[in-house]
Design a protein around this nucleic acid. Sequence first.
RNA 1: GGCGGGUUAGCAAAGUGGCUAUGCAGCGGAUUGCAAAUCCGUCUACGUCGGUUCGAUUCCGGCACCCGCCUCCA
Length: 470
Amino acid sequence: MQTIYNTLSRQKEVLNTIEPGKVRMYSCGPTVYDFYHIGNARTFTTFDMVYRWLTATGYEVNYVRNITDIDDKIIERANENGEPMETLTARMTAAMFEDSDRLKLLRPTHSPRATQYVDAMLDIIRMLEAKGIAYRADPVGNSGDVYYSVRAFPEYGKLSRKNLDDLQAGERVAVVSAKRDPLDFVLWKAAKPNEPKWPSIFGDGRPGWHIECSAMCREVLGEEIDIHGGGWDLQFPHHENEIAQSEGVFEKGSGKKFARYWMHAAFLNVDQEKMSKSLGNFFTLREVLNKLDAVQGGETVRFFLMRGHYRSEINYSWDTLEDARQTLLGFYIALKDVPPAAAATPTILDWSNPYAARFRAALEDDFDTPAAFAVLHELRREINRNASSEMAGLLKALGGTIGLLQDVPEQFVQGAASSGVLDVDALVAERNASKAAKNFARADEIRKQLDAADIVLEDKPGGITEWRRK
RNA sequence: GGCGGGUUAGCAAAGUGGCUAUGCAGCGGAUUGCAAAUCCGUCUACGUCGGUUCGAUUCCGGCACCCGCCUCCA
């Protein structure tokens, strides 16, 4: 039985989907104005893991991750660059998918772009206005912003457990505006000169940030969905506002819920602090990958991100990254030394195997990846002890359910080390000849030379010498 | 000010009212020309003060420290 910690109830709940066997899942994607950072990568990897795992255990998952391609930061950046907004977002969207491929993120079932759903957003805003929840800054005309009246939605604050009066008590100096309540948020922004705009009954303008997710969820997945996810900081105000918008259009007493389960991935920190540009501790995924071995980097980062439970903060540093690489390498070395039985794919997983059963129990307990990896380590020891290709097949298959251990082991352990200036094969051959001639001094010299290039030699039975990246 | 999360061995990181989590590193042994890999064994734990209990790292309360949200933010 799959359980999920639901931010709404602040406890683990059994997954009970709207349609049996099917999952409608939406997670908030990137704003494409720049390369994404490793904090984004943490959240994306979390939901990729959830997507893969639920699929592996038999659910048909419709996974939507949006692309925000209209936003203040985008407009600002495009202006700085002196390029059209569309050129910037197209380039950054392509870069986003490239980076995601390196992280081994599956493409979501759908990746809708906000600018393609402006009509759907306007539909919702119209419905909210008809219900008296949305109002125009310019009550008689159509030349101003459109706001959401938080006081008109009694359940406002239920996700983040915030109370409107408390919020107002701590509110910062508000900008003068036509808002009825300082906490009201914008649904539609009236057009300003030199900004992208769309025509509407509210006048020319562009959508506010929160409305796009409500619209894309509704259009692509339906009025009600099962799982909605995102980073911890999206809880308020973004997700709170999404609920207000999406549930605001429901009939009173309909009992409908926008999303049944809200999942939030914890932060990735640097030096125990949230990563942010102002602190100068900001890394793009690209930068991190470029510092790592070209072959091992993607899965190393992926594994690093999954080594902590998704609701626990993790700390990024070179040491924690290298620690993750060494551990992952251990799995690949086992798979290299004991080749998995053929056809070991997730679809033929034998869940009755004790290791598989425990692995599954861990992930069914709110996606407890660290506990699942502990089982994998025990399985690894079993494989090494008995040279069981059947168990090696199981290890590979279990790893595959969450997007790990699918590379060719020989290639993974060697990494990109062979691209150096040394002719490894020639040196290995010379060393073997030296050994045969009992010239151990020369043999050791070669080992030392290769070690300096981060290459480790392993003499195997039968006179075979293998090598790998240190 | 309001609300929420955290504090586990050298590092990383789960979890549990009494039973070795796990990994990396370290130490000892087996193995090896030397190594590596592997196997076997092994040392460091649950912030602090109280309470409940036969028994608490685990439940309850106080305290300390850290972090986050309340403004764009994964």
